[in-house]
Amino acid sequence: MNIRLRNSWWSFGFRSAILLYFFLLVILPIFGIYVQSFSLGWSAFGDSITDPLAWKAVLLTVRIAVITALINVVLGTIIGWVLVRYKFPGRRLLNSLVDLPFALPTAVGGLMILLLLGPNSWAGQTAAKFGLEIVFHEPAIVIAMLFVTFPFVIRGVQPLLEEMEASEEEAAYTMGASRSRTFFQVILPTMLPGIISGGMLAFSRALAEFGAVVLVAGNIPGRTLVASVYIFGQIESDETQAAAAVSVLLLTLSFLILWGINIVQGRRKRT
């Protein structure tokens, strides 16, 4: 009896410790930032996010994140398709390389873009000849975000294509459907949940991206200053309440997207 009593105390302690850790590490900080952003009242919160630099940064971020997500949707769908459906030399290698942007530190990613397209590089100088400026301008931000979010759509589409049985496609052919009709009415709808959730993940990651962007964006307030860098700047200048306010805006947006992804994936599981 004694042993069992001691056991139950142990397991009680253990459970509490794990749940407490979860609470302190994840729930409390998120809760805290929402509290902090309203700590000086609604009007201070309003002032913080209506600061022109703040909302310009948020708008810029959202705009570029949308562009990034759209490019990702197109490229990711094609690449996911190619990697699953075609057998060609180097396929396995490419398939492993897909994850590299996840494995690579984002700051390294930013530096790579800087080295490759910067004002001293061959590509940068060529572009400059045509009057195109990449680094420290919007295109660089798009490229940086594209690099970090590259795997999402591909990894979303691949399992769906692999699961899909050839018989579905064959059934469409036997009913006289053309190749393009089969693609748009049979294959694409199968891939769609992966494309949508992959695109949403890419969008939310792009919204949050900091490391790669801060190195290449130039961070000119009002022009190339994205939200996460703006928040960083506010923290550096000890304006934590303003930083928290913009953070809350960004967080809420991200949480909504996460919720949307859950719904898309939940629907997929049910059917």
Binding site: E209, S228, F232, I235, L258
Partner: peptide
């Protein structure tokens, strides 16, 4: 949730 939180915000 931490997936959706920008690292900078996490630090903040």
């Amino acid at each position: 949730l931490p997936y959706a939180v920008s690292p900078v915000i996490g630090g903040l």
